[in-house]
Design a protein around this nucleic acid. Sequence first.
DNA 1: AACTTAGTTTCAAATATTGGAACAAGTTTT
DNA 2: AAAACTTGTTCCAATATTTGAAACTAAGTT
Lengths: 270, 270
Amino acid sequence: MSELGDGTVGKALDVLDRVASFGRPVRFSELLDDAPYPKATLYRFVQTLTNQRMLAYDADTCTYSPGVRLVRLAHSAWSQSSLAPIARPELERLAADVGETVHLAQLDHAQVLYVDKINPTRPVHMFSDAGKVGPAYCTGIGKTILAYEHPDRVEELIAQQSFHPFTPATLADANSLRAELVEIRAQGHGFDREEHEPSIICIAAPILSRQGRVLGAVSITATTQRLSLAALEKLAPRLHEAADKIGAAVGSWRFPDIDQRPNCNREDRQ
Amino acid sequence: MSELGDGTVGKALDVLDRVASFGRPVRFSELLDDAPYPKATLYRFVQTLTNQRMLAYDADTCTYSPGVRLVRLAHSAWSQSSLAPIARPELERLAADVGETVHLAQLDHAQVLYVDKINPTRPVHMFSDAGKVGPAYCTGIGKTILAYEHPDRVEELIAQQSFHPFTPATLADANSLRAELVEIRAQGHGFDREEHEPSIICIAAPILSRQGRVLGAVSITATTQRLSLAALEKLAPRLHEAADKIGAAVGSWRFPDIDQRPNCNREDRQ
DNA sequence: AACTTAGTTTCAAATATTGGAACAAGTTTT
DNA sequence: AAAACTTGTTCCAATATTTGAAACTAAGTT
């Protein structure tokens, strides 16, 4: 899951990921079954993480779950992010204009990470929506981001897709995906044709930085009962306007009072 | 900030906290100024955390900020929490009934951590609201939680308060706070009398588990322009009803399919 | 051209991590 | 009622990792 080889810290964070990905409070022994660590080692990690409030221990059920400290840290992460907070006003305008649900997502570790969602009718469910991850190969946002990723990275990312067939429309293999990415580049936006969930469709446009790097994507989601793909496509100009504005805003925006003295030698960092 | 003495992992998480608490992207050298680590050591931590996507590095500005992986982990933490997701439906009913903003918070490290917020009029701003922290000694929620904390812990927690005078009404010292806690216990709920921000007032009630442990608190917030403290007090019965229902729901609710075989020897864990 | 500042790498010494094995405490089986 | 499990916790010597002073690189400044 997480890049190992970062010493103790990397391993501890791997354990944290494992607990989180259980999706429910987990017992020590369950963790021990899948984790590649000896008992005593895993035990110490879990203790340390619990001490640090990165995990919470429930004495009644003898289970661990991700701790509240993460919620606090995520607040910082979200509000300091160079995409989500800047995009928000534009997303609100877009959602109000088109009257449909709007998502903002970026790529995280070959998966789509939803960082914001505006639903013009229902109130938003905070953490239950933002922070969600989804597959890249069968969502409009995911495919669109892939289409604009640097060619060198795309193959790496494709190799990490599972191609699980969620619906009959799900792309089945790397080649179908590659073909679709070409098409998305040609028309400038991607669709989800009920590839992840039946009756859920969407149109997504990339958010590009000034240098042409893809930062994420915005999408308009609808159900087949409400709208057709053709109807979604009619919203494309408005969607692109929003995506482009966000790209421009991100490019021109810098946190105030930062020493603007680029001095970093070695910019060949990942 | 974070309990040290948890070896390398503890130190790395301390560095993460430091980056997060800057509230803006931060340069390596700024970090070096306040952190108690030698250059090379700090450098390696920052590298490791960046590799692990717990930090994000912006090559243009040479700055670090908390990484997206945290947003993902926080989503797990929130939805697996034993309080926030269970409380949500009741909070929605409460907010609809009273027509004012409702908060849910718990204690984290002697501070108040807001884990949910419902605003019946305006749409909620996801991560910009949840995950926020505030002082315990000058918020309605904070004081109310303190009032119901275990006596042994209260003094510890009081010792960690800063007593910064945000407004003329802010409690000035530990003794005023102790007196107020007695009063809160007597009447069953606490108030914020513009102690944190001018013209912001609130009433808060504790959420108690079956065993009588305080899990967090719910509050109804208003401005002095809209409501008086007396008007807020009239909402107390409805507020208590909500808090009690949440307490009961938390107590009776268990994640499905967990081995219900309490076996943990040594329950003297923290 | 010398000086300063910011960031990066090196390497031997110091220290923390590792994990097999033993232990404790409760649960089920014989 | 003893034996055998299961789950969780502790010990400790071998080992691998972290540590941090100092040297180095590269860019900006005087």
